Amino acid sequence: MIVFVRFNSSHGFPVEVDSDTSIFQLKEVVAKRQGVPADQLRVIFAGKELRNDWTVQNCDLDQQSIVHIVQRPWRKGQEMNATGGDDPRNAAGGCEREPQSLTRVDLSSSVLPGDSVGLAVILHTDSRKDSPPAGSPAGRSIYNSFYVYCKGPCQRVQPGKLRVQCSTCRQATLTLTQGPSCWDDVLIPNRMSGECQSPHCPGTSAEFFFKCGAHPTSDKETSVALHLIATNSRNITCITCTDVRSPVLVFQCNSRHVICLDCFHLYCVTRLNDRQFVHDPQLGYSLPCVAGCPNSLIKELHHFRILGEEQYNRYQQYGAEECVLQMGGVLCPRPGCGAGLLPEPDQRKVTCEGGNGLGCGFAFCRECKEAYHEGECSAVFEASGTTTQAYRVDERAAEQARWEAASKETIKKTTKPCPRCHVPVEKNGGCMHMKCPQPQCRLEWCWNCGCEWNRVCMGDHWFDV
C-alpha cells in the first residue's frame, strides 16, 4: 500500500509500505531520502505521535493516508518512550493509558441525555464484534464512529474520518494533550489543546475536521460531520418502519427517538411537499423529531443533505422563500418566477423588478396576487391545505425507538455506581478489583462488596467470576 509523507509540512511524497511495516522502518526510509538522522524524526498522525514499535496496521493507516513527519531533536526523557523501550505506560498493571487514536474515538455516547454525564468515556458498548469485510486488514473493525456528507465523488452519507490540525499553522502536526470525549470537544473551536510539532510553531489549540472515509482524499478535501447519525450498535428499532437498520439518525429530543435514513428521507420529502418545515429565527429551515417532541429541531442543517441534490435544492429554495415571508415580504405569483420581494408595508401595487435578471417585471396586487387592478379585489380565496398535519407515529413504536432507553438498560445490566462519587462504572470481565475512572475520584473498590478495596476482598473473592 501507499502512504503519503509530508516532511516538515512540505509537499508530500509517496512511500510504499506493508501492513506489518513498523513506524521506525518508515522513519528509516524517510531519513534516507531526506539525509537526516532517523532518531530525530517524529511521525504524527490523527493528533498522535506514533511509536517506533507500532506497525502501519496498528495505527489504522489506510491506503493513501497522509502522515506528517517532522525533524525535531529529542528532548530529555522522550527518546526512550518513542523507541518502544522502557515506557512506564506499558508496564503490566499500570494505570496510565495511551491517548486514544482519533481513528478509534467514539462519540456516540454523547447523544445520551444530559443526566448521563461521564458515560462518553466510561461506558463502552460490546456491539462492535462484526466481522471485518472481505479485503480489510485482519482485526480491523467495521464499526463506524462518525458519518459525514461527502460532496465529492460519493454525493451521499458516508463513514467519516476525524482529523485534527494546529489552529495556528493549519498543519496536521499537532499532538493532542488528551483525546475528545464528546461532540462539544470536536465542534467547539479551541476547546481542546495540544502541542504543535512543526518547527518554530508555538500553536497549542486544536482544530478538528472530518474527511470522507470511503475514498482517498487530499489535504484540502473536508466534509461536514453529521453528528446525529450513528451506527445502530444498540439495535434500536426505527420509529417509523420498526426495522432494525444501521446507520440511524438520533433526534435530540428527551427520548432520543431513532429513525433509519430511508424513513428520514421520506419524512423530509413529505414535509417538504406540504411546505411544513419549521422556520426558526436562529436555526433556519428545519424539522423536529418525527414524533413531534418539543425542543427537538435539527440544529445542523447539513443533515438535510440526505435528501439528495434535487430535493436539497428545493429545500434551500423553500427556506429562502419562507425567510422572505417571515420578513413581511411577498413572492411573485407569476408561474416560473417566484422571486422574493420586500415592498413597503402599505404598498398595494407590487412590481417584480426586472433588474439584474432576477425579476420578471410582472405587476400584481398584494392582496389577491392577481395582475394589478384598481378598486376592490374580486375574490380572495383562503389558501387550502395549509394546516399542519401531524406525522403519524405509532405510540408503541415510539416507545421502542428510544436510544436513551437502550442506554439505561445497558447501564443497569453492566454497571454499578462507584461507592464514593456514584458514577456508573462498567465491568466487562476481569477481577473484582475496580478503579473509578473519574479523575477527581480514582477510588479503588470491590465490585462484589461495593466497598473500598481491602485485604478481605483480596483474599476471599479477588478473582471470582
Rank of each mutant, 00 (worst) to 15 (best):
I2C: 14
I2F: 09
V3G: 02
F4R: 15
V5H: 03
S10A: 06
G12Q: 09
G12S: 10
F13W: 05
P14T: 03
V15W: 00
V15C: 05
V17C: 07
D18A: 12
D18T: 13
S19H: 10
S22W: 01
L26E: 00
E28A: 07
V29E: 11
A31Y: 01
K32S: 11
Q34T: 13
L41R: 00
R42F: 03
R42A: 14
I44H: 03
F45A: 13
F45Y: 13
A46P: 00
R51S: 08
D53N: 10
D53M: 03
W54L: 11
W54S: 09
Q57P: 04
Q57R: 13
N58T: 10
N58L: 06
N58E: 15
D62M: 13
D62P: 14
Q63M: 10
I66G: 03
V67F: 07
V67R: 00
K76T: 14
G77R: 08
G77C: 14
E79H: 12
E79F: 11
A82K: 13
T83F: 14
G84M: 12
G84N: 10
D86K: 10
R89M: 14
A92M: 13
G93N: 12
G94W: 11
C95T: 10
E96L: 11
E98S: 11
P99M: 14
Q100N: 13
Q100G: 13
L102R: 10
S108V: 09
S109A: 09
V111P: 14
L112K: 13
G114R: 13
L119P: 15
L119Q: 15
T125Y: 07
P132H: 11
P133T: 10
A134W: 07
S136Y: 10
P137L: 11
G139N: 13
G139W: 10
R140H: 10
I142L: 11
S145Y: 04
Y147T: 02
V148W: 01
V148S: 00
C150T: 00
C154D: 00
Q158R: 10
G160T: 00
G160L: 00
K161D: 04
V164C: 05
S167I: 06
T168W: 05
Q171P: 01
A172W: 05
T173A: 11
T173D: 13
T175D: 11
Q178T: 14
G179I: 03
G179C: 04
P180L: 02
S181Q: 13
C182W: 02
D185C: 02
D185E: 06
D185P: 01
V186A: 04
I188C: 08
I188P: 05
I188T: 09
N190K: 10
G194N: 01
H200Y: 08
C201M: 01
P202F: 08
A206T: 03
F209I: 15
F209K: 14
K211Y: 15
G213P: 04
D219G: 07
V224F: 11
L226G: 01
L228Y: 11
L228H: 08
I229C: 07
I229N: 00
T231E: 11
R234P: 05
N235A: 09
N235S: 13
I239F: 05
T240C: 14
D243R: 12
V244P: 04
S246M: 02
Q252I: 03
N254Y: 08
C260I: 00
C260Q: 01
D262F: 03
C263Y: 00
F264V: 02
F264T: 01
F264Y: 04
C268K: 00
V269T: 05
T270F: 04
R275N: 02
H279R: 12
L283M: 10
Y285C: 03
V290P: 15
P294E: 12
P294Q: 09
N295F: 06
S296A: 03
L297D: 04
I298F: 01
E300T: 07
H303G: 01
F304N: 00
L307G: 04
G308V: 04
E310G: 05
Q311L: 04
R314Q: 03
A320H: 11
E322A: 05
G328N: 08
G328K: 06
G328Y: 03
V330E: 08
L331P: 03
L331H: 04
L331D: 03
G338P: 04
A339I: 13
G340W: 04
P343T: 09
P345L: 09
Q347G: 09
Q347V: 13
K349Q: 06
K349S: 09
V350S: 03
T351C: 11
E353V: 09
G354Y: 11
L358D: 15
G359V: 08
C365Q: 03
R366S: 09
E370S: 07
Y372F: 10
Y372S: 08
E376W: 07
E376A: 14
C377L: 02
A379T: 13
V380A: 08
F381N: 06
T387M: 13
A390D: 14
Y391K: 05
R392T: 10
E395R: 11
E395N: 11
A397F: 10
A401W: 04
E404F: 08
A405E: 15
A406C: 09
E409Y: 11
T410V: 10
T410G: 08
I411N: 14
K413Q: 13
K413N: 13
C418V: 01
R420A: 13
P424S: 06
K427G: 09
G430Q: 15
K435G: 03
K435H: 15
P437T: 08
P439Q: 10
R442G: 09
R442T: 15
E444S: 15
W445P: 00
W445A: 02
W445L: 03
W445Q: 02
N448C: 07
G450T: 06
W453I: 15
C457P: 01
C457Y: 01
G459P: 02
G459C: 15
H461Y: 00
F463A: 00
V465N: 15
